[in-house]
Design a protein around this nucleic acid. Structure first.
Length: 561
RNA sequence: GGGGGUAUAGCUCAGUCGGAUAGAGCAACGGCCUUCUAAGCCGUGGGUCGAGGGUUCGAAUCCUUCUACCCCCGCCA
């Protein structure tokens, strides 16, 4: 609808050019915005303001000429010139009502587009180390990452989600040593407790299971506890599998699914890491110092050179990271989005620098990153401290159990990733209008309830018939609701393009508010059949869009509450 | 010290890549349930958009300086 009006302006401008009012080479892209204030019409354009200079006349005067040159169209009821020279477009009622038909006809596809043109995109997220349970920060990553996948998928991308398992580094040795210590009955404060060992209570559970020879199925592996406290390799194998299973269960409870679990260890097994070292050395970007092998990342915008291979011969996490991303590139992902906590910010420059040093034609700004800021959790007005070392731990599972999957997901995805997030458990728990999740879901449930009542009354409703009567939707509340519905595809497109799922949450809050207002102001199930048909159609359209939008957030749309 | 992020109502946050009188929710106060779900609606109060400067028809938004808070700056990941 917006595009159609924009093209009207384009043709008006063309006419003014041929009339000599505007120069041939006027530089303007027609900008058309939705108005905030409905007294300014539905759409407003600032073309007259931006072109006033090149036309050599006051903006308002130019605006008049543009309006006069606009081709007649049933879409636009009238135009107005306002303020310093805005052109306000008042759209006809029928053009507004057409959105209801569009929603009902496209149903679950309404809002989708083919903007991605089937191109491949990979979203990597969570990627937690298998050294402990998932905490709230991982939850934010899971909520945002999964929603990104849904958005990209809805906008025509071929999406692959991936979880990277750091199952090969020093922290895994640390995990194995910690579990071993627990197997031997040591406590974190004992003298022989491993330095920097994981102190959490969950380590006790792992040790107990290992010593009890429990069996664990995680993804593709089946591991049985060897019950031998001296066999560190078996302890490592068992511990990783055990914690991985725990994480998988958490993610499942959170409604998050990954297409690929990529193991860091596979990069060593396949020789990919060694190959990357060789390439980097051949390209002349490496040097040795203090017995370690360095990469000159400062040549690629880093503020410091980085160690690749430590003095003890082991690799830092940096090198497998580069090998991993080379692997992604070789798999054909022209677009990759890494969703991570902002504390990993420094890896961005480093990974990109490493990829540049490989000289494989990878773009300098590849891959994309979405970094989310830290999450603090409040309960009873006090911050719940999350300390991995001390082992006092609020896990994602705890949160899901306490406030439910829907509320947890909504709260974690409803804020812009770049702002710090305060998760208020009391608010998420409250079953009142304090809680925006319920507010949106309630709007959906109400619309469903109307349909049940319709059937109880013995009235029938047919879509084809109802769409004939959309002109009955003449109330201002109805017009506002339809204008809101019309915006939805733009919201989805922009949320996907800018990796901002929270804008969908904001939109749904507003849509739900419009719906509740209308619901209270006007009755849908009236005796007058054409009016009833039309209002039920609008209600169904709202229900559809709420369901579609909640779907993009991974939140359920209940039929009743 | 260097890098990144944030700063908008008492609180939690939006603000459609520069548009018109800056918006929601919560909290406070006052109304609405014999009527499709009151987990709802209507109304009132509440602001120097952290501070200064700049860019222009026009700035919460862009540039710059400063201040405060968060994160990172390891041969950990």
């Amino acid at each position: 609808m917006k595009e159609q009006v924009a093209s009207l302006i384009e043709s008006a401008l063309k006419e003014l050019v041929s009339a000599g009012t505007l120069p041939e080479n006027h530089s303007s892209t027609v900008q058309l915005d939705r108005t905030r204030d409905k007294s300014h019409g539905d759409l407003a354009s600032n073309v007259a303001l931006t072109l006033a200079k090149s036309a050599g006349m006051p903006p308002r005067e130019l605006a008049q000429l543009i309006c006069a040159a606009l081709p007649a169209d049933s879409l636009v009821e009238r135009t107005e010139i306002a303020g310093p020279g805005f052109i306000n477009f008042f759209l006809s009622a029928s053009s507004n009502q057409a959105i209801v038909a569009a929603v009902l006809q496209q149903a679950e596809h309404f809002g989708s587009s083919d903007a991605g043109k089937g191109r491949k995109v990979q979203v990597e997220y969570v990627s937690a180390n298998p050294t402990g349970p998932l905490h709230v920060g991982h939850g934010r990553g899971a909520a945002v990452g999964d929603s990104l996948c849904r958005l990209l998928s809805a906008t025509g991308w071929e999406v692959a989600s991936e979880f990277y398992y750091n199952d090969a580094g020093a922290q895994i040795d640390n995990l194995a040593l910690s579990v071993q210590a627990r197997c031997k009955g040591l406590e974190p404060d004992d003298e022989s407790w491993p330095e920097d060992g994981y102190r959490g209570e969950y380590i006790v559970d792992v040790a107990r299971a290992y010593m009890a020879a429990e069996e664990v199925d995680a993804e593709d592996q089946h591991v049985a506890g060897a019950a031998d406290a001296d066999n560190l390799d078996e302890i490592r194998r068992f511990s990783v599998a055990y914690l991985r299973r725990e994480q998988d269960l958490d993610l499942k409870a959170f409604g998050v699914h990954f297409d690929v679990y990529f193991l860091e260890s596979s990069l060593y097994a396949s020789g990919a890491v060694e190959e990357v070292v060789k390439t980097l050395q051949d390209n002349g970007h490496c040097f040795e110092q203090d017995g370690a092998l360095w990469l000159r990342t400062t040549s690629f915008g880093d503020d410091k050179d980085r160690v690749m291979r430590k003095r003890d011969g082991g690799y830092t996490y940096f090198l497998p990271d580069v090998a991993y991303h080379l692997n992604k590139w070789q798999r054909g992902f022209e677009r990759v989005i890494n969703e991570q906590g902002a504390d990993h910010h420094s890896t961005v420059t480093r990974v990109r620098a490493g990829l540049q040093a490989l000289d494989q034609g990878i773009p300098g700004d590849w891959p994309d990153y979405v970094l989310h800021q830290m999450v603090t959790v409040m309960r009873d007005g006090e911050e719940v401290k999350l300390s991995k070392r001390a082992g006092s731990y609020l896990t994602l599972r705890d949160l899901i159990d306490e406030v439910g999957c829907d509320a947890t997901r909504y709260f974690l995805v409803a804020r812009g990733p770049s702002s710090q997030l305060t998760f208020d458990i009391d608010l998420a728990l409250s079953q009142s209008n304090d809680n925006p999740v319920y507010y949106i879901q309630y709007a959906h449930a109400r619309a469903c309830s109307v349909m049940r009542k319709l059937a109880e009354q013995g009235w029938d409703w047919q879509q084809d018939r109802a769409l004939q009567h959309l002109d009955q939707l003449s109330q201002e509340h109805e017009a506002a609701l339809m204008r809101r519905l019309d915006r939805y595809p733009e919201v989805v497109a922009s949320a996907a393009a800018n990796s901002e799922p929270h804008t969908v949450a904001t939109y749904l809050r507003e849509l739900a508010a419009d719906f509740h207002t209308w619901y209270n102001a006007h009755k849908m199930l009236v005796e007058d059949q054409p009016l009833r048909d039309a209002r039920v159609a609008l209600s169904l359209a709202v229900r559809q869009v709420i369901a579609n939008g909640l779907g993009l957030l991974g939140v359920s749309a209940p039929q009743e509450m």
